[in-house]
Design a protein around this nucleic acid. Structure first.
Lengths: 352, 352
DNA sequence: AGGGTTTGGGTAAGCGGTTACGTGGGCAAC
DNA sequence: GTTGCCCACGTAACCGCTTACCCAAACCCT
């Protein structure tokens, strides 16, 4: 392994000069710079990041922790596209800042271990909701900067970024009520502990209340944030009721998609017999037949913002924690019963 | 920032003992261990990864370099799901081995810089085809272990993993010819420099030749590996010919999907007027109407294998480079004209 | 009882960079 | 001819761990 000493020796300068050439860009002549750079190229020297990180207290890596749904039981194909987009966004923001992103998926069981292992390798951590038990999150946050993504910032005094779930679902549900005249609705939730799902249910309830309909105490059924989760939730819903509701609001797109085949095999048609909506606007939803009416949230931007907040936090450790809420937007397609798509989307800004 | 010295002092032991407790698990009494662990918990100490990496010559991080198609021009939504799956696979294999994955997307322009920046932070690199110019790849590979993913291992003497593109496309094309009796086919390629695309075209040609049809010198048209790429390629194809071909073999799913609307607006129906096939079997393809006949390749496994090869290489620097080819499998759905799905898939093992 | 081995644990030398500080030469200002 | 300053560069301490080596006490055997 070639080191800075070797480079210095071969260039006839000290290691300090080599280091300066590689960094600031001052304190040496052009001739020296060229000589050093030539040696570097010749030797193929790559400065050791650990050594650099050790002295500068900054490794140029941010971590992204997310829950691995696929691993924890459900089918492979159910893996959340949502996370992929967030990863992409995080990568983009980090690269733009000269950093890189370290990713790790937590199982319920291994979360704590993994988080600590990550923490030792990064300058800070972006933690997606439900990747970590609350106590582990709190513990980690004491030793490394953390920003929370998509929920649950409540108890912890941390930076956080999320989408306006509540306003989005409220707008969407209102559309179902006002534009389509539905009065018999149901909400099928994601995992009980997912803050996203909870907020979306609240938006749903807001809309019902605003329309003078009874306020449901809890979601009608629930499941994972996955296709099979949606399948199960829909089965449970149909089994529980004598007649199907006029419209079903799902906590996310994948659940809505998963429910489709259950609906069909129950002899029902979407949207004629039952309107169906999702949340996220994953790319698949647009291609579906009927195309899925849903709420789009800026998944990639979520990842970007989270990393930006984190980098800012790293540079300013004692700044007041901030909370960023990105707007969502309803996307009207066919599955709600709409036929024409003019003026189809509109932004849902909440007052949360 | 709390260090091992602080932990040692508070526990009344030396740093050596703290280190031993955190690592091997020998050379200290149970009482000492408990005392140290208690202090660690109390202080929330996380060992500094840089310091550790500096002495142990191993940071426990592997890098994954991939091309960012979205960034480099085409629309956002065209981003390759394929890569996301590879990332997940890599993450899984790395986590299983106690490592983590650092990801970075290269633009054409910034590739070299980025690769070096990554190289300084990792123990090794998985490089996806077309993330790096050939010369940069060679240069990087001299200073850090590299395994190549999905192509182009030819010139470089590196470990590599890929899917059996050629056999997959051959089987699929043969199906079009034999089962459906098509004799007028077209192939629409991905980026000209993508080894995957080239191999798929070769498989296509193999099948034509095997059926006694003329061997085309080159793809009928091409584009990026994206929806808009498919759109453009299909437009070019239709513009160039008097009548549409009976079947079109695309270099990947996203292109096939992108072409659908062009086909429809040309007044053609899939598969009645034109059969269409893809490659990859992204999750979207199953949900399409008509569902897309395609070749599935184990994207996640590709990522897993690549990381495993890499970790192996890191442990054994002078082992002979290996090349792993994973089998592909044709997935018969509706877009080729098939109506019944019995015995729908079969593995395509090549002799490559 | 004496010598060898094991056990528990301390000392300190690095790992490969960065950077505060020091130094000598050249040059402008007086 | 001094003095003072800037520039280009070297010296060496230090970042926070790991581990080779050393040592004392306890244990075991003949």
């Amino acid at each position: 392994m070639v080191t800075i000493y070797e480079v210095a020796r071969r260039s006839g300068v000290s290691t300090a000069t080599v280091s300066r050439v590689m960094r600031d860009g001052r304190g040496f002549s052009a001739a020296t710079r060229d000589r050093v750079l030539a040696t570097v190229g010749e030797l193929g020297w790559v400065p050791n990041g650990s050594a650099r990180g050790l002295v500068s207290k900054r490794v140029g890596i941010v971590g992204l922790l997310f829950p691995d749904l696929a691993k924890s039981g459900d089918a492979e194909e159910d893996s959340p596209l949502y996370v992929d987009q967030v990863i992409r966004g995080a990568e983009r923001a980090a690269t733009a800042a000269g950093d890189a992103v370290l990713i790790a998926a937590t199982l319920r069981s291994s979360g704590r271990q993994l988080a600590y292992s990550l923490a030792s390798k990064v300058d800070g951590l972006v933690v997606l909701a439900s990747s970590l038990a609350d106590e582990d999150l709190a513990s980690i946050a004491r030793s490394v900067p953390v920003v929370l993504l998509a929920g649950g910032a409540a108890g912890h005094n941390l930076d956080s970024v999320g989408a306006d779930n509540r306003a989005g679902t409220r707008e969407l549900t209102s559309h179902l009520i006002q534009a389509h005249g539905h009065r018999d609705l149901a909400f099928l939730s994601g995992p009980a502990d997912a803050p996203d799902s909870v907020e979306r249910f609240e938006g749903y309830r807001d809309a019902l209340v605003a329309a003078g309909l009874p306020s449901p105490p809890a979601p009608d059924a629930g499941g994972g944030f996955t296709e099979t989760g949606g399948e199960r939730a829909m089965k449970a819903l149909l089994a529980r009721r004598e007649s199907p509701p006029q419209a079903v609001v799902f906590a996310n797109d994948q659940m809505a998609i998963g429910s489709m085949k259950v609906i069909r095999s129950a002899g029902l048609r979407v949207p004629a017999d039952m309107a169906v909506t999702g949340f996220d606007d994953i790319s698949l939803s647009r291609h579906l037949r009927p195309a899925l009416t849903t709420v789009s949230q800026p998944m990639r931007e979520l990842g970007e913002q989270a990393v930006r907040l984190l980098l800012d936090r790293i540079d300013h450790p004692r700044r007041q924690p901030r909370s960023v809420v990105l707007p969502t937007e309803i996307v009207i397609r066919r599955s709600c019963g709409c036929r024409r798509l003019a003026g189809a989307t509109r932004q849902a800004r909440g007052a949360t």
